[in-house]
Amino acid sequence: MNATRQHRIQVNGIELSVQVTGADEGPPIWLLHGFPECWHSWREQIRALAAAGYRVFAPEMRGYGQTSSPAAIADYDLLTLCGDIQQAMDHFGHAQVVMVGHDWGAVVAWHLALLEPQRVTRLITMSVPFAGRARRPVIEIMRELYADRFNYILYFQEPGVAEQELNADIERTLRLFMQDQDVFLQKKPPSARLLEGVPAPGALPQWCSQADLDVYVNTFADHGFRGPLNWYRNFERNWQRTECLAGQQVLQPTLFLIGDRDPVGIFEAHTLKRMPDSVPHLEQHVLPNCGHWIQNEQSQQVNTLILAFLQKP
């Protein structure tokens, strides 16, 4: 496998850091990470895909790592995030690509499939399903459902509050997210903090070495969590700006993967049931004994499913 090389390119008003691996002539495949992750989250997939002949593009998404982290919340709306990748594909001369996304990266990947029906030829998403544009902003629905109890997405809405907590000890924050995914399902008052009452982190999970964790920590060292949290502060703006996509289906062949212990499966149970209506060419798998960090926790099974899906006619 060719060594990974960093490209820093000017797109959509920012500098985007993209790690590129694999033979120059290989078909391009993009890997979009989620929160709170980094390009290194795809390390096992990068190796497998490059070995299979693909040229792999793993960006640090807007607000993360060495990619620009603008101050304005509106600079992180969904169509702007899609625009970063669209212009990056232009930069690299990509006429056809496979798009892969996990968590928030999956949200971007779903919408790139809608915006670029000719260029995105196959789609692979993990953890976050898709069932079309909602009838009203999701954040309105969440405020009604969680008026009397804690919800981490609502907690993220007030600028500065979550940043202060998560930035206080970045390594501890990341270790807790990796080791205890139930922090996102806590039952406590709406005024609580996310990590309040959570026990100190123990040993790292088997899939994350200290060297791996160091890469994650370095990703947040300069800018902290402000940029990544701003992704969560655009639900209403996202809904307004995607009106043109209302009613559209994702028509590309699509592979969807989720762990049976993923908290998102609880939050998005209704969307999971409705997904085939919006994604008619859908193959989906629930991975056993697997939480949210699916491409790391079950990397071998994820790689097997991805490569088998890519080999289908």
Score class of each variant (00 low, 15 high):
M1C: 13
M1L: 11
M1A: 13
T4W: 03
Q6L: 15
Q6I: 15
N12L: 08
N12S: 13
L16F: 02
Q19T: 14
Q19H: 15
V20K: 02
V20C: 06
A23Y: 04
D24E: 14
L32Q: 10
G34E: 02
G34Y: 03
F35K: 04
F35T: 09
P36C: 07
P36N: 02
W42F: 11
E44Y: 15
A51Q: 08
A52P: 03
R55Q: 10
E60A: 11
A72E: 12
A74Q: 08
Y76E: 06
Q87S: 10
M89L: 15
G93K: 01
G93P: 13
V100F: 05
G101M: 05
G101R: 02
H102F: 06
D103L: 14
V108D: 01
V108Y: 02
A109N: 07
H111Y: 06
L114T: 02
L115Y: 00
E116N: 03
P117F: 08
R119P: 14
R119Q: 05
V120F: 07
V120R: 04
T121I: 09
L123W: 04
I124W: 03
V128L: 11
P129K: 00
A134N: 15
R135F: 14
R136T: 15
E140V: 10
R143Y: 10
Y146W: 11
F150I: 08
F150D: 04
L154R: 01
Y155D: 05
E158P: 00
E165L: 10
E165F: 12
A168V: 11
A168C: 11
D169G: 05
I170D: 01
E171F: 01
T173G: 01
F177E: 13
Q179Y: 01
F184S: 05
F184H: 03
Q186L: 13
Q186S: 09
K187R: 12
P189I: 00
P190R: 04
P190G: 06
R193C: 05
L195N: 01
E196T: 00
E196L: 07
V198E: 09
P201Q: 00
G202Q: 08
A203K: 00
A203M: 09
L204I: 09
L204V: 11
Q210V: 14
D212C: 14
D214N: 10
V215C: 08
Y216E: 02
D222T: 11
R226A: 06
L229G: 03
Y232T: 03
E236P: 10
Q240M: 06
R241E: 14
T242H: 04
G247S: 02
G247I: 04
Q248K: 09
Q248W: 07
Q252T: 01
F256N: 06
L257G: 10
R261D: 14
D262Q: 03
G265L: 07
F267V: 11
E268L: 12
T271N: 00
K273D: 10
V279P: 15
E283L: 14
V286E: 09
N289C: 14
I294F: 12
N303Y: 12
T304V: 15
I306H: 09
A308F: 01
A308R: 06
A308Y: 00
L310V: 08
L310A: 05
Q311M: 12
Q311G: 13
